[in-house]
Amino acid sequence: MVPDRAAAAKRASFARGGAAALFAALLLVLPATLLAAEPQAAIEAAWWAWVLLLFVFSFVLGIFAVLAGVGGGVLFVPIVSSFFPFHLDFVRGAGLMVALSGAISAGSPLMRKGLADLKLGLPMALVGSLSSIAGAMVGLALPAQTVQLLLGIVIVVIASIMFLSGKSGYPEVKVPDALSKALHISGIYYEESIKKEVSWQVHRTPLSLIFFLMIGFIGGMFGLGAGFANVPVFNLLMGVPLKVSVATSGLVLSINGAAAAWVYMFKGAMLPLIAVPSIAGMMLGSKIGAKLLTRVNAGSVRIIVVSMLAVAGIRSLLKGFGI
């Protein structure tokens, strides 16, 4: 890079960081009452306005989620619970449906291409679905303020992981572990970008099962899709190529989400009035986001999304402390 261009790129990077910081600061100081209108009569009078706003908001989140390479649920729950008048119980129920619907609608082509792998995903989904049911039960039994506080902590940790963690396109696994060998967990897929077949195998399967048990619990408890955690475990811990990790994560969270969603339904925490516009908005937004992916600087979007997550996490923490 010539010096002028390097300096320009540096300035642009600073500008992006500054814009994200400004945006984050604005969100943080924005009074909750501005969006989460306090007067109950106003809420009753304008239910359609909230539903419309939720749809538009989910649509925008869907665009950002795809551009930043994160699942919808992880953005949806902390932000909607911070800025909309719905109780966290219903937001978590809707968050699970957002994640589940997105994974289901994207799943078929990914499986046909061999990117989402059943043999890799099913054992992880089996343990994850059990713990996601448990997580949902615990989450709905705990006092709302405690859940809000814990959600804040989890979201701030996720934002930090997203900011710091790396990823590996094609990790090399020299020796697969005994369990993955016994289960024949390995695969091959055609990578269009490099016009080559990529074969993969995995290691650390038993440890990963424990991780998926924990991830399922957190996903069920907070109504998060948990792709933010599934992907690093598949990719960085087990050594699965990034694309297979992302696609198989969708399979896992579709099963885990379906298991936990029943708990929300039987506890009365699933409101179609809230869940359906969220699903529709997020899915439409994801489609637009996928089209914009080649034209937008994904790095800048990621900075904004991480900032939004951090702010939503801090707001959840403050709400959890009753501030």
Binding site: W47, W50, H87, D89, F90, L271
Partner: peptide, 15 residues
């Protein structure tokens, strides 16, 4: 829908 909207700020069991 108006009744749901008037109570969506409550915890699920209360609603």
């Amino acid at each position: 829908i108006a009744e749901i909207a008037a109570n969506w700020h409550l915890r699920a069991p209360l609603m």
